[in-house]
């Protein structure tokens, strides 16, 4: 129950934070966002989000995409051509909200989804049937074709999970409401956040990578220790 409340609290906190992006805390976040955009984004995405050979058009990408890319640290790229992967965000939450508000003001893109607590069991069912093939049942992520990978979900916030489901960033498919309903998105986010503390049930989880590290442990710490033991108690010279 305490865990459930903690998750609920966490979910609400994140939802509150993203709500703040829609209802600006400072008089003109777009202005502040525009300044930040000019410093950090315009080189690739153009002065007004119109895009350039180095980066795509952002006019209709919307708040959800901006929030996802910025809050997971995928954008801005540390250098052109860097892989799009989770990093420490370059901006603090207020700056992200400002940038998101600015990019949302450029056109008509999807807003940041509001996530609330969903049904845990339904979340498990959908996650296993739809998400685990790429992200792994253990949230460890997975290998795709052509050197691409599905990222681990060990640090994603419920809002980021919802954004990714709706937008399909990178190689990921997108799932509109007709395929995964809002309630189901809530359920998935709830499941993922509640699974994380269970991942080490039973001991060191070995990265969630399954039988490969398990086999290595069995050889090194299982048979290895025992081989050492028999070497100690047996004679060495043939």
């Amino acid at each position: 129950m305490r865990r459930a409340l903690a998750i609920l609290g966490c979910t609400l906190a994140v939802a509150g934070a993203s709500g703040a992006a829609a209802a600006p805390p400072t008089p003109a976040p777009e202005t502040r966002g525009r300044a930040l955009y000019g410093q950090s984004c315009a080189t690739c995405h153009g002065q007004n989000g119109e895009g350039s050979p180095r980066g795509p058009n952002l006019e209709n990408s919307g708040a959800a995409a901006a929030d996802f890319q910025l809050s997971t640290g995928r954008m801005p790229l540390p250098h052109p051509g860097a892989a799009s992967e989770r990093r420490q965000p370059a901006f603090g939450p207020r700056d992200i909200d400002a940038l998101t508000a600015y990019i949302a003001s450029l056109g008509h893109g999807p807003a940041i989804p509001v996530v609330s607590r969903g049904d845990l069991q339904e979340g498990r069912e959908i996650f296993v049937s739809t998400c685990a093939a790429c992200h792994s049942g253990s949230l460890a992520g997975g290998t795709l074709s052509s050197g691409q990978a599905a990222p681990p979900l060990l640090a994603s916030t419920p809002t980021q999970i919802a954004e990714a489901i709706r937008l399909g960033p990178g190689a990921m498919p997108s799932f509109p409401r007709g395929v995964i309903s809002d309630a189901q998105v809530n359920a998935i986010a709830t499941y993922v956040t509640s699974l994380r503390p269970q991942l080490d049930h039973g001991g060191a989880p070995l990265g969630g990578f399954g039988p490969v590290p398990e086999g290595a442990v069995a050889w090194v710490f299982g048979l290895g220790l025992l081989a050492l033991f028999i070497r100690l108690i047996g004679k060495r010279a043939p």
Binding site: R124, G137, Q198, L199, D200, G203, E214
Partner: peptide, 11 residues
């Protein structure tokens, strides 16, 4: 000490 085959995780 070490988890093996966490079937609850795989589903």
């Amino acid at each position: 000490l070490v988890q093996v085959n966490p079937v609850w995780v795989w589903g």
